[in-house]
Amino acid sequence: MTNAVEQESIKVIVFQLADKEYAIPVSHVQGIEKLMHITRVPKTPHYVKGVINLRGVVTPIVDLRERFGLPISDHEETTRIIIISLEDMEVGFVVDSANDVLDIPANAIEPQPEVVGSLEEAFISGVAKIDRRLLILLHLEKVLN
């Protein structure tokens, strides 16, 4: 993630949150799941929705909308859980929809724009412009800490 800029091109999973498109390198993605029953875990940060049974492994779930301070929406048919693995952690992200797998050329990635903005700004490692789409690259370590 952090050294994404040095690479020639990276393969990413693109997903939608509110009106924006975000990207996570496929190397960190374990799978994409349909929404399933989430067991609430008490006394956790508000964005931790709880845990799911992912084929026998108890996996925590983070709602990215809430993590980024975006307006909360109801879960819909397109809602997906993207299972991320980072170091020794496995976490699922709830996203509005998972759209695409793309190759982003390294030169299309720019450092995060210097705009005073929302909470989510802290979680961005860069932005990529491909055709007419603007992809926001997530900084996974920061999202999870």
Binding site: T39, P42, K43, T44, V51, I52, N53, V58, M89, L144
Partner: peptide, 25 residues
């Protein structure tokens, strides 16, 4: 175990998977 992301949750020592596939704490 609840994994490495959720640690030190008050009064919860772990989780289990029930017959219906759901997780119980």
């Amino acid at each position: 175990s609840l994994g490495n992301y959720l640690t030190n949750i008050f009064a919860i020592s772990g989780a289990t998977i029930l017959g219906n596939g759901k997780v119980a704490l």
